[in-house]
Design a protein around this nucleic acid. Structure first.
Lengths: 102, 102
DNA sequence: TAAACTGGTTTGTACTGCAGACTGGTTTGC
DNA sequence: GCAAACCAGTCTGCAGTACAAACCAGTTTA
């Protein structure tokens, strides 16, 4: 068996989860994004998004800044260097797998 | 956001799990495989492999035949048509995602 | 001032993956 | 001949996960 397959075993589970893969991918295309924008784009419930952002922040993949837009709270999310790197690595692993088996 | 991203939301979770992706990918390269061969190739514990095979069988993605090799039990696994199709679809979705964002 | 909305967080539940304990049978050592 | 080790798997318990619904603090609208 090729290494591409063995590589599957150590995929980054933080990134591998589809909802989070969606989130980080969206974040990778913008400078930053607020909570509701992400919710609409990703099609997630608030609770779900909140939880996933929590994990991504804990993993050091996104930076979350709580501010205010006028008087309303506003949560702004931004992919970190580490997050960007993790996403790139993940895509490389997946691409390797697909190329090797497709 | 492109459809490639939305597509992430409905990835086949049965296939998406790395251990199972590994299993079905291995099975896609051989006519059939017995339990211990799969265990060695995939690097999984017996318990783990047994559970995953159960799910794959339940999903209709693998066919499991219990026979004997001499006097010892032997479990032979084979990818079904549906399993092969599911794997192909999964790879297409992933390829689409990677191409669109890479 | 009450009702409805905004922008989220916390809670509860059901599912999942995983390793280790266990089972039924077989071969080996003594 | 029988105990110990081994083979081929399954079952069990636990820790972690995702998800939606309930909740909360504050703000705008009626």
């Amino acid at each position: 068996m090729g290494d591409e397959l063995r590589g599957l075993a150590d995929l980054d589970r933080i990134i591998h989860e589809p909802a989070r893969l969606l989130i980080v991918t969206i974040l990778s295309t913008v400078e930053s994004a607020d909570f509701l924008f992400l919710q609409r784009e990703a099609g997630l419930t608030k609770g779900n998004l909140s939880a996933h952002l929590g994990k991504l922040e804990e993993a050091g993949y996104v930076e979350i800044k709580k501010t205010f837009k006028g008087k309303l709270p506003l949560t702004v999310c931004k992919l970190t260097k580490a997050g960007s790197k993790a996403l790139t690595l993940y895509r490389q692993q997946m691409a390797r797998f697909i190329d090797s088996t497709g």
